[in-house]
Design a binder for these strands. Structure first.
Lengths: 115, 115
DNA sequence: CGGCATCCCTTAGGATACTG
DNA sequence: CAGTATCCTAAGGGATGCCG
């Protein structure tokens, strides 16, 4: 099932998920729609620059939407798109792995095979 | 199912998967056990330094094993551990997402909501 | 062959101040 | 409030050369 063709294929996805804060950010939006300031607080100590960078990229890739409500003070909300929600299984798989494999923090299983 | 607790929980996993080459590298090993040189060629243009860095980290985290066969010239093989194989569902989920969502390369769905 | 050791460089991301 | 504009640092990764 997993063959060489997969390797290049998932590249565009890796581009989307890349970045220190992308996954935590997406998880926050999966939990619920949030405003810029909320995200900033939740993801503390993220910098405003980084947060905007990521939000813009994810928007560009069609993973989240930015909704601006007119009025002062500004009110902007971010939430996953359909495409974005479809990423959930990936997180679920990660979550499952952590549950079952992080417990025993196995280290270096070095093998030396004698000819 | 996805709540706040997941966010911190998957952090150790993100640490493992981090790095430009980690996923392609793991995919290569899922396809089949490989030697250092093979990996280097397959992952071209990766640098030897980066490749060793990643291999060492993954070994340290218990995701892959390094098996050294004595003799000259050296012969070393890398393959996923049990923990490593367990990561497959994650890749499968990524693969599935790409299949179903990459086709239409949707871009910026900007919304302006009027009060 | 399978790596280290070095040096170098690009860039993601942090800190801070300011604006519509 | 929701960013933008600057400046700056840290570090991941590239290139190269050497060694057991």
């Amino acid at each position: 099932m997993l063959d060489r063709s997969c390797i290049e294929a998932i590249d565009p996805l890796l581009e989307i998920l890349d970045g220190k804060w992308t996954l935590p950010l997406l998880l926050e939006l999966f939990v619920g729609t949030k405003r810029f300031g909320e995200l900033r607080r939740r993801l503390d100590p993220i910098s405003p620059k980084t947060l905007t960078d990521r939000l813009r990229l994810l928007e560009e890739k069609g993973i989240i939407t930015r909704t601006q409500y007119s009025g002062v003070p500004l009110h902007v909300e971010y939430e996953p798109t359909e495409r974005g929600w479809n990423l959930q299984p990936i997180f679920a798989a990660m979550w499952a792995w952590v549950q079952e494999n992080s417990l025993s923090d196995k280290h270096g299983t070095e093998k030396i095979a004698l000819t």
